[in-house]
Amino acid sequence: MKNDEDLPDNVDWIEVAGKEKLATKNYVPGNSVYGEHLQKSSTHEFRIWDPYRSKLAACIINGMKNIPFTSGSTILYLGSSTGTTPSHVSDIVGKDGLLFCVEISSRVARDFIDNVVSFRNNIIPIIADAHNIDSYTSIFRNIDSVYCDISQPDQTDIAISNCKEFLSSGSKLLLVIKSRSIDTTKSPKSIYEQEMTKLESSGFDIDQMIDLHPFDKDHALIMATMR
């Protein structure tokens, strides 16, 4: 399971107190974003990446392979919240990469800007509703992949329309499905199926679907490729 080759750039397994933990190479050495542990190796400083706090970490630990984020990628990130996961993605893409982060709530955007963006020059914050692509400030560079985590009933549709606008054929979408924000009466499994069918009929091929249990209840992460 703990095969380094499957990890994205700048991500590694680090030994902390005898246990292997997922971590990212700190893009801003000395800076801890949400109280995560910083660990120095001989060459680098790492930030421990908590799968209970970040669904991307959870899905890597649960076995998602070939995550399309690499050093230098340009990513459109929908639903950045206070920046827990974006900060690790910022570590991954590094100084040549760029992260456009869309968030609707100005309350959480304020924290995000103060605690994360102001330390990391590879993040561009955008306060906007991901429904209204027109209200974004310029996405001025070609987007390589889209990450979407916005816990809305129509989250899949929002992800699709953003991909159609910004991605080209062959690029990838990572989509967090929170089954409870779509329909509480159906089983999570049937909702994951339903959302995958929706993606397929909108021009995507499903690569992988990873359940985030035990780190998150009723959540899955889907990776899909735009045809």
């Binding site: 692509i133 996405i139 001025f140 560079r141």
Partner: peptide, 8 residues
Amino acid sequence: TINSSNLF
């Protein structure tokens, strides 16, 4: 929109 193009 011209979103999918490079402004650089």
